[in-house]
Amino acid sequence: MSDALDIALRLIAVFVAFLVFPLVIGQTEHKVMAHMQGRLGPMYAGGFHGWAQLVADGVKFAQKEDVVPAGADRRIFQLAPAVALLPYLLVLVAIPLGPGNVVGQSLDAGIFFVLAVMGVGVLGSLMAGWASANKFSLLGGLRTAAQLLAYELPMLLAAASVAMAAGTLSLPGILDAFHWWWVPWQIVGGLVFFTAGLAELQRPPFDMPVADSEIIFGAYTEYTGLRFALFLLAEYAGILVLCALTSVLFLGGWHGPFGADGLGWLWMLLKTAVLAFGVIWLRVSYPRLREDQLQKLAWTVLIPLALAQIALTGVVKVVIS
């Protein structure tokens, strides 16, 4: 009985994190982006510096009519947001928050699980793009697919480098094997992983698939109300997952200069928050890459870098063993 209770508690904790942290990231994005542009951002909702803006947005989205275009493929159109959102919820289960057993569910092939399921999330965008019966949506879906195919590979290679270094595929296992000098050792892989992850999430500057100024909002053009909100939530949950994953794989997760026993979770959250800030910062600073630049960056820069990182990892691994 206590086993079932334990599992239920863990799942509830993961679910709460899944609901809270994306909103926190979204609110941070509102405010950070505003201040980086010399604005204030939301100031009304909730009273103190507009802290409840996203709650208000959610209420607004819930009130809106859920429109399905007449020419759309109804069932797939309605299914797509769930397909986009659920994988991130599943991924969150496998990410360790602290040392020992502070993880939703420890998996033997954690890296593969996480990357595989994140890849499935893109399927939601593809379904949405196709089922909307809208040429802009279709274009967005196409770009999403092209981008995923290009950036999945460097992401996998960079993650494989860490797995090689740690000698395990399990995320808690990787953290147990972590030493501080892994950070400089794997830094190239980390950059490749983070960049490729950004591209897979279609965050600026890699937001060609949702480029609102040319294809409106890509695959999400026809979506309204709650389903649209689910897509947005998926984007921010994706940021959370990517940042948490990067800090687990490349920055040592709950390892910190001090207080590793009691404050591990704090280090993990801190690293994730810093990376999320970086995601927002990049969005504000850089213009959108063109589609061909996007592909070129993946195939001519990131993949060679990732391969070089794997070679370096292999050499160092052989030398020190």
Binding site: V32, A34, H35, M36, Q37, G38, R39, L40, M43, W281, L282, V284, S285, Y286
Partner: peptide, 17 residues
């Protein structure tokens, strides 16, 4: 580019409330 945005963030925003 990153420096520009970071510097702007530390300055007072110009929004009139």
């Amino acid at each position: 580019g990153l420096a520009v945005t970071l510097r702007t963030m530390t300055k007072r925003s110009v929004t009139e409330q």
